Amino acid sequence: MIVETEERVKLKTPDELLEVLKGSCFVRQEGWWSYELCYQNKIRQFHVEDEKEKAVQEFILGVYDEEATAAFNQNLSDISTLKDHRSKDASQRYHAHQYTNGTICDLTNEPRETEVRFVCSEPRAMISSVIELSTCKYALTVQSPMLCKHPLFQEERPVWHTINCNLLPKDYKEAKPDEVETEDEQIFMVSDVESSNYDSDE
């Protein structure tokens, strides 16, 4: 007797899918500032002079914090809901990494920190937005095509229903409303006076 066994392929975690980004850095310019994310390393905010091409102002927005990242994803699960006002879709799923212990903020006297949000998006990996959630606390969104391989990051497909149609027999005749047979029913109306007399007889 031959028993066929189904080989189960272990689903890769979001972090395993993102491993291809190791050693990569991404830069986005927004007005005066440029932002550089080096995967699982650090995030810089800097301004470069055109002539010298040297950073004349620079802040570290956070250094990758493995423990904080693990704790965050354990509490909220690997998938969270991103509500980024710059996103075309108001509700996108993302996988988050935490970057902490950045340059001290002058306004709060606390280190700057950033949440990096990896979302499923084609065609290439890039920083799509940087927002300041509160004073010196940032959210940086990264388009990550490799996450699209994970089923939890894929768009929900519409549900299709099959409708079977059958021909009606030639002698089929749809009954008209006035042809529907109804049973004769007698309706008795009892007035309040008759009802009270009936009660007194009892």
Score class of each variant (00 low, 15 high):
Ile79Gln: 12
Ala70Asn: 08
Val142Phe: 02
Leu107Cys: 10
Ser144Arg: 04
Thr135Glu: 13
Asn41Ser: 12
Ile60Val: 10
Pro151Ser: 00
Thr141Glu: 03
Glu4Phe: 10
Arg117Leu: 07
Val63Cys: 03
Trp32Glu: 11
Glu30Ile: 14
Cys38Ser: 02
Gln45Cys: 04
Tyr138Trp: 11
Leu37Lys: 00
Arg44Ala: 04
Thr182Lys: 09
Arg28Met: 05
Asp78Cys: 14
Glu16Cys: 01
Arg8Asn: 08
Trp160Gln: 11
Glu49Gly: 02
Thr81Ala: 11
Gln45Trp: 05
Gln92Gly: 06
Phe153His: 00
Asp78Gly: 15
Trp33Phe: 06
Ile104Phe: 10
Ile79Tyr: 14
Glu202Ser: 13
Lys12Leu: 15
Leu76Ala: 14
Asn73Gly: 07
Val3Arg: 10
Arg117Asp: 04
Glu58Trp: 04
Glu122Trp: 01
Leu76His: 14
Ala125Asp: 06
Val159Phe: 11
Gln29Arg: 11
Gln40Leu: 10
Gln154Glu: 10
Met146His: 04
Gln29Thr: 12
Gln29Lys: 08
Glu67His: 02
Lys83Gln: 14
Pro169Glu: 08
Pro158Leu: 07
Glu19Arg: 05
Glu36Gln: 03
Phe59Tyr: 12
Pro158Asp: 09
Cys105Trp: 11
Glu155Arg: 06
Val180Ser: 06
Glu110Lys: 14
Thr13Leu: 12
Leu140Cys: 08
Asp89Gln: 12
His150Lys: 00
Ser80Arg: 15
Asp201Cys: 12
Leu18Phe: 05
Thr69His: 02
Ser34Met: 02
Thr81Leu: 15
Asn73Ile: 07
Thr182Cys: 10
Lys12Asn: 09
Val193Tyr: 13
Gln40Ser: 10
Tyr138Asn: 05
Asn109Trp: 03
Gln29Phe: 06
Asn73Ala: 06
Asp65Gly: 01
Thr5Phe: 10
Glu202Met: 13
Gln98Ile: 15
Arg117Ile: 01
Asp50Gln: 06
Trp160Ile: 13
Ser80Pro: 10
Lys170Cys: 01
Ala68Thr: 06
Gly62Glu: 03
Asp199Asn: 07
Ser144Leu: 08
Cys165Trp: 09
Tyr198Pro: 03
Leu107Pro: 02
Leu167Ala: 06
Cys120His: 02
Leu76Asp: 14
Met126Trp: 04
Ser134Pro: 02
Glu156Ala: 07
Asn166Arg: 07
Gln154Asn: 04
Ala96Thr: 14
Leu37Pro: 01
Ala96Gly: 11
Pro169Ser: 10
Val130Asn: 02
Val159Ile: 12
Asp78Ile: 14
Arg93Ala: 13
Arg8Pro: 00
Phe188Val: 15
Gly31Gln: 06
Trp32Gln: 09
Ala71Phe: 07
Glu202Asp: 15
Met146Gln: 12
Val20Tyr: 03
Asp89Asn: 14
Gly23Glu: 04
His85Arg: 15
Cys120Leu: 04
Leu147Ile: 05
Val9Asp: 02
Cys148Gln: 01
Val116Asp: 01
Thr114Trp: 03
Gly31Asn: 05
Val193Asp: 13
Ile163Thr: 12
Val63Gln: 05
Tyr39Asn: 03
Ala175Val: 15
Ser80Ala: 13
Val142Asp: 05
Ala71Ser: 09
Asp78Pro: 10
Lys12Ala: 13
Glu122Met: 06
Pro14Gln: 08
Ile187Glu: 11
Phe46Gly: 01
Glu181Leu: 12
Asp184Cys: 13
Glu202Cys: 14
His97Trp: 12
Val119Met: 00
Gln40Thr: 05
Glu122Asp: 09
Phe59Arg: 05
Ala175Thr: 15
